[in-house]
Nucleic acid binder design. Structure first.
Ligand SMILES: [Mn+2]
Ligand SMILES: [Mn+2]
Ligand SMILES: [Mn+2]
Ligand SMILES: [Mn+2]
Lengths: 222, 222
DNA sequence: ATATATTATTAGACGCATCTAAGTTTTTAT
DNA sequence: ATAAAAACTTAGATGCGTCTAATAATATAT
């Protein structure tokens, strides 16, 4: 039953997450993301290919195999379950949990994560709105709509984030925006794409880049 | 601020725990305990000596330095806090937690363990009755009395265990013995050192080896 | 189409943690 | 006191994951 090194697990997870946005991941991009040099990554790809976790051909983009996707999915599952546990059970802020989860995702103990899952009532999303893969490592990837795609007059609920770096999360904390926050779109500014919104009783202005990184849905009952 | 490899942390912790019982730990004994060959341990002792964590002289027994004791104490603190968290918060059995704690003790996140500590109300002992070192890594080592040292007629409370291997813990589960269990000593058998005890309404016979591995105190209010 | 820049691979090295084989020191037994 | 056994160290090797320097392939620009 599986068991790879901490190092290999990080390669798999990173590769999986990168493959969601861009379906052609290069050695160079992966090296950048992992903070490693290209030859290091090339060498690891050769090893992961030998493990049948990636499909690798010289000078070609890298792809995970089905086996690789499953392994990656299970690590991401542990990461996201952990983040949820840290927020819901241990009462950490959503901006504090990623670095801890980055370590706990490598713990080898099915019963530990099973217990987390139970305590949380089998959550389907992490504290940043990302889907939690199922016990087989499979991710149910829903279509997500950036806030900037909605129109004035619409009432939307925030359901996810494109990035969860903690500076962004702290920014959202200051603006009192979280998952489930309901926003009414007052106006979209033509010139710079910023949006004027009603948040409860207050009025709020969000810049275009921020609106691109917030996912939303039409609020229920509107 | 510190930060040693997972590997070095395990050497320090093991050395510390062995030094409590035997104050002269040999390369051979440490190698046995860690499941490694002697040359491996010799080589690591030379490295830890260079780090000023152990005092090492060729062919002499090994001792931790004050710095080494502190590092070790902090790892043991994380281990025991984790075990307590797993039992009290996550409702694991005391026989399930050691292996998980063995991994989580290496997590580097002061805030994570601080939160555990708070949630648990700053416990002083782990689920097996062993003392939890303080935030500086210092262990308050109390004198402990094995059950076999008490006399017939005495009423005692179980406060700790000499070993916490899970076969022993499961044995105690079957006998319904845990920390806080009160036992009345009916009789000590001269021949084999076994003890006949009253446990609630039931009568119980414990062999000498078991009585040596249970720590007890005279029960309060007797 | 050719030159240039970018991306990727290979070769060779290093530190960590481990091993085996060989030799040395210390302890134990006779 | 001597021999034998046990404990310990040194030397040298291996696998993992990383690096730099050198080389090769691919992509981009002129
Ligand atoms: Mn995360
Ligand atoms: Mn990780
Ligand atoms: Mn333990
Ligand atoms: Mn450990």
């Amino acid at each position: 039953m599986s068991l790879h090194s901490h190092t290999k697990e990080n390669y798999l997870k990173t590769l999986y997450l990168m493959s969601i946005d861009k379906d052609n991941v290069s050695i160079n991009e992966l090296a950048q993301k992992l903070g490693l040099k290209m030859p290091t990554v090339t060498s690891m790809m050769q090893k992961l290919a030998a493990d049948r976790l990636v499909k690798y051909e010289k000078y070609k983009p890298i792809h995970l195999t089905e086996k690789g996707k499953k392994e990656a999915g299970l690590i991401i599952r542990k990461h996201r379950l952990t983040e949820m546990f840290l927020v819901e059970v241990m009462k950490f802020g959503w901006e504090e949990v990623h670095d801890i989860a980055e370590q706990i995702e490598h713990i080898n103990s099915p019963v530990f994560f099973k217990k987390m899952d139970e305590m949380l009532g089998f959550p389907e999303h992490d504290p940043h709105g990302s889907p939690i893969p199922d016990r087989t490592g499979n991710i149910k990837q829903a279509v997500r709509h950036p806030l900037c795609d909605f129109n004035s007059g619409e009432s939307v609920v925030i359901t996810g984030l494109a990035r969860s770096e903690d500076d962004f999360l702290k920014f959202l904390n200051r603006k009192n925006i979280g998952l489930g926050t309901i926003l009414n779109i007052i106006e979209k500014e033509e010139y710079d794409g910023s949006m004027r919104l009603k948040h409860g009783k207050r009025e709020l202005l969000l810049s275009r880049p921020v609106c691109e990184e917030l996912f939303a849905e039409i609020a229920a009952g509107t």
